[in-house]
Design a protein around this nucleic acid. Sequence first.
RNA 1: GCCCCGAUAGCUCAACUGGAUAGAGCAACGGUCUUCUAAACCGUAGGUUUUGGGUUCGAUUCCCGAUCGGGGUACCA
Length: 542
Amino acid sequence: MIKAIQERIRNYLDEQGYEGLDFIVERPKKRAFGHISTNLAMKLAPLLRKNPYQIAGELAETLFQNIQYLEKIEVIRPGFINFFFKAAYFQSLVEELLAAGADFQKPQLLKKEKIQVEFVSANPTGPLTIGHGRQAVLGDTVGRIFEWFGHEITREYYFNDAGRQMRLLGLSVYARYMNLFGYEAELPDDGYQGDYIIDIAKSIADKWSDKYLNQPENSLFTDFAAESVFKMIQTSLERLNIRHDVYYNEKDLYAEGKISEVLKILEEKNFTYQYDGAIWFKARFFGAEKDRVLVKSSGEPTYRLPDIAYHRQKLLRGFDRIIDLFGADHHATFPDVIAALQAMDLDSSKIQALIHQFVTLTKDGEKVKMSTRKATFVTLDELIDLVGADVVRYFYLMRGADSHLNFDISLAQKESDENPVFYLQYAHARMHNILVHSREKGIESFLEGDCSLLIEDEILEVLDIISEFGEIMETAARTLDPIHLINYLQKLATAFHRFYARHRVVSEDLELSKARLKFILAVKTIITNAMGILGIHTPDVM
RNA sequence: GCCCCGAUAGCUCAACUGGAUAGAGCAACGGUCUUCUAAACCGUAGGUUUUGGGUUCGAUUCCCGAUCGGGGUACCA
């Protein structure tokens, strides 16, 4: 409906020669202002040199005649045009929704895109923390949103199991392994102190007994630790129903010569120079405040170089769109990567960064400072144990990505009974129960029910919200933020609960019951679908 | 110093590309179960949208300055 009006306005503007004019067609906050409203007249006023109120009146009489399901138009000062629809419009949505199912309001795809979403990408040095959890759920859900539109999604995890941190991990495991056999061995300075290190050491001891004593440099410790930690990480993600399609190891970039290729290209294009024994990238040429080192004077590349090579590979792999998730602490890298890609004449506009702010954790009213190395973190697993996967997913998504997320552990635990996610699930369970109840009452079928009997304000309100679903999905995709879908579901559930409290579905009036059962099935369908996109379960019974 | 995010009810946060009387949840107070699940519903109270300017028919939203908080500004990742 909103699209029909938008289109009509656009055609009109084209005819009149005002193609570029930007106007809005929106759903006003107050029902008194109509189901849909436009500011068109106020935008036209300066061009036509006329009073917007007068323009609005004229448009209402001409442009906006013969609109299907239109009940009335109102023109309000200073020049809003407000549209009110007939109940028949909302009733028709029930049939439409039941026919389309999960495809309800899904737009025709102009082009099926190959989209890569890269997220988590934590090096395997320890269990995932609450901070990683936010990125995991956010990335996965963004993928689900694009999947709904019909795009092809690759979920990717980029990691590096070489380097200093991993060596420290190996040495930490080694020390614990020695301890198990009663030998003195100190954790290295900056070593990893978590209990999981001891568990890994035990696994090694179980498997090979004392075979590796006194071999601190044996790569077995690092390799075994990396593999163990990776399993932990995957298990944690699996619990949240998250699976990556591709694990991309930074090592492969070296092995396949991709690092040196990048250096060579940048050098040929004259975007690098040597200074102080290091190789620098002319980042200033692309607007950075200073140039960046790609290869240290030690001959070792900085983190930037593999990042650049990795993103070059992403583009060469043929993705139409690439979405990178990172926390606010890593956002500084991004402009350098983009600049280097541009330097290599690659189309960096395909890459989008989704930067999310930190998760701060409070416990008993106090801030908890988290560090993987010191093991003073709360793991994602602990959080899932505490409140369950559905609540975890929901909580991570219920704040905008660029807002700080404050996770109060004590509160999440204490109040898990009155959690907003249960509000949604409860609505679904109620609907399920109504359908079960109707069968018990002997109503075998209701799909032939007459939707024109659905006339209560509470029902029309729910259907009005349902009519908005497609737009919400588009907003979520455009902004890369599932929070819009969360807010939408809250609104929908609230409207449903209000209806439920005031009207019975199954009653003595068989025809009315059938109509309302159709309505219930329609709402249940859309809630199930939307919750599925968020990766949250819809239990039948609570 | 410079760059990026944020600042909205007591608390945690919404408000779609600038729209009309800024909304939820929690906390507080009062009401509603002999009916399909009260994990719900209804009502009351709670605001100078941090601050000072500017842009315009209209600003929580855009621009400039200030303050506070988080992050970055490495030949760490």
